[in-house]
Computed example of a mutant assay.
Amino acid sequence: MPTPSPPKPILVFLHGAGTSASIFRLQSRRLAAQLSPHFDLVYLDAPHACPAGPGVLPFFEGCGPYLRWVDDEAPERERAYWAEGEGGDVDRLVREVRGLGSSGGSGRRRVVGVVGFSQGAKVGMEVVRRLEGMGRMGEEEEGNGVDVKVVVAVCGTAPFQGGGDEREKGFRGSLEKGVVKAASVHLIGEDDPWRPESEKLVEFFDEARRKVIVFEGGHQMPAAEWVNTQAVRVVLDACGL
């Protein structure tokens, strides 16, 4: 009998606010087409219902429920989301991501990266930061199906986005917790109204291991092939493929 091929490593996809995993599959299809030969792509749904997000209607009319990871409309609501503990949304997502990695007859499936759009990008940042913290505390054996090497942040927003003293205080407090050590590539829409947020999110990643690509477009997944190809190259290099 032929030897089974080892399982592909996993990339976790986190959608933006007011969409869903199924919608994100369509939105990210150009990037996914280049990644899927090398990785298993796992799309997760956020836990909270909300109105449809920017640009979702009318194209995705009737494709609800529309979901979001965090209520970030006010600093106090967002602060509750980032709180650590067994009952916290972020820690539940961390456990879900860790649970994706498993051992099987043909080898171990490993989660090696996160792709996040808009709100999903900042949530992905925090998930990876906490996973890296577990490794530093010697807890890697518990989550041995996770070895995050790369983050792709597309039109990301930052923790405590927006202006005001309370938001700025929250942003700085979050940044003081440290930066993500994994390699990262940041795809930023030139005309994205949330571009300043995308640029703030870059600060949460290791300066020596991050790459920023500005593309023509707004708050959207990039359509240009060269943008997706450059992002995929960063992912493949980070994963040694």
Rank of each mutant, 00 (worst) to 15 (best):
D206P: 05
H48Y: 07
V154F: 06
E197Q: 15
R108F: 00
R92P: 05
A223R: 11
G101T: 11
E142W: 11
F117G: 02
F59C: 02
D165R: 13
R109H: 03
C50W: 07
L41P: 08
R210M: 13
S20P: 11
G62A: 03
G64D: 13
V227A: 02
E168I: 04
D206I: 06
V151T: 06
L175P: 00
E225Q: 12
S22Q: 11
P7T: 03
A74P: 02
P222L: 01
A238Y: 08
F171Y: 09
A208T: 14
A83M: 04
G178Y: 01
F13V: 15
P6C: 14
D237G: 13
A183R: 10
P37C: 04
E86T: 07
E126V: 02
F59K: 10
R77H: 12
V154D: 00
P58M: 01
E199W: 01
A223S: 12
K211T: 14
K211C: 13
S28Y: 09
V202K: 15
A121N: 09
K211Q: 08
A121E: 04
P2V: 09
A223G: 15
C155S: 15
G173M: 04
G173N: 09
L44I: 14
W82G: 00
L236Q: 14
V179M: 14
V185C: 12
A182R: 02
E76R: 11
Q119S: 05
G143W: 10
E132K: 06
G178Q: 14
G53T: 03
G218P: 00
S36K: 15
L201A: 08
K149A: 06
A32F: 08
H38I: 04
V151R: 00
G178A: 03
D45E: 06
G156M: 00
